[in-house]
């Protein structure tokens, strides 16, 4: 039986009582490269964070490989937005990639030679091996993104959640990343990518999740990438939803 890498039911998130995601139902099949698209403030990053429990869900549930996130966490790799970390932190490229192995090591386990070899292989794959000893603040945006990607590879996960990996990277890096993602997919991995560029979204992904506070559509790119659905996602018909959300917030204060 095929496993379902990710399933959410009625997932609802509110920041400070202000709803940002409304009842999201998805079932992501295995071995797909999925793009999450939608306008600014549509809750794309929030969806990923809610799946991982970084922001608490106010309703609904999430299952990762048929289990709670905490139990399935070891099979999930995460690439945060590049700006979300402090790049002046005193670690070098190798240290960052090795962090990807920490989940496998447990709290006290020592970093073994095999872990280093895996980390090196992953760095090599993204073309960053020569920079292994470089302090992370001395990297360009594209290089930083590659390091994050190498770290995700080192996690050896089955499901990857990536938050805007193409923001602020050069064209070469973007091409390299997408090639890598396709390779991962071919090995049966499932990858969710938050993406903000519509034209490339059509060519990059097998499946698309159209999101604007609630799930507008989820399906194969060919079926979902239609004028009508995109209009619905980006159009103004849903403004009442956010207006009402604001009223609810005001009333509850």
């Amino acid at each position: 039986m095929q496993e379902i890498p990710l399933e959410t039911h009625d997932l609802t998130v509110a920041y400070d009582k202000r709803p940002v995601l409304y009842g999201v139902d998805v079932q992501v099949p295995e071995g797909k490269l999925v793009g999450i698209v939608g306008p600014n403030g549509a809750g794309k990053s929030t969806l990923i964070k809610a799946i991982m429990g970084i922001v608490p869900a106010t309703g609904g549930w999430v299952k990762v490989f048929g289990d709670s996130f905490a139990k399935g966490a070891k099979r999930v790799g995460y690439v945060p937005q590049r700006e979300s970390v402090d790049w002046d932190f005193p670690v070098n490229v190798m240290d960052v990639v090795l962090m990807g192995r920490y989940g496998k090591l447990g709290l006290m386990g020592r970093v073994r030679k095999s872990d280093r070899e895996i980390a090196e292989a992953c760095l090599d794959k993204v073309g960053m091996l020569p920079y292994a000893k470089r302090q992370i603040s001395n990297l360009s945006g594209g290089q930083q993104q590659r390091v994050f990607l190498a770290r995700a590879l080192a996690q050896e996960s089955d499901l990857y959640l990536m938050d805007e990996p193409f923001v602020g990277v050069d064209a070469a890096t973007e091409a390299a990343i997408i090639e890598l993602l396709r390779e991962l997919k071919d090995r049966g991995k499932t990858i969710l990518v938050v993406h903000h560029d519509l034209p490339t979204a059509q060519t990059y992904f097998d499946m698309l999740m159209l999101l604007n506070m609630r799930l507008v559509a989820f399906g194969p790119t060919k079926e979902v990438f239609t004028q009508e659905l995109l209009q619905k996602t980006y159009g103004g018909r849903l403004t009442i939803l956010s207006e009402v959300a604001n009223t609810v917030l005001k009333e509850s204060k």
């Binding site: 009625d10 409304y22 609630r214 939803l241 009402v244 609810v248 009333e251």
Partner: peptide, 20 residues
Amino acid sequence: QAEYEPDHVHDDAEIIEHVL
């Protein structure tokens, strides 16, 4: 409009009805 499943909408409406 927002294409919800009919079984999801009732609880939400319970709150919203008082603030519209």
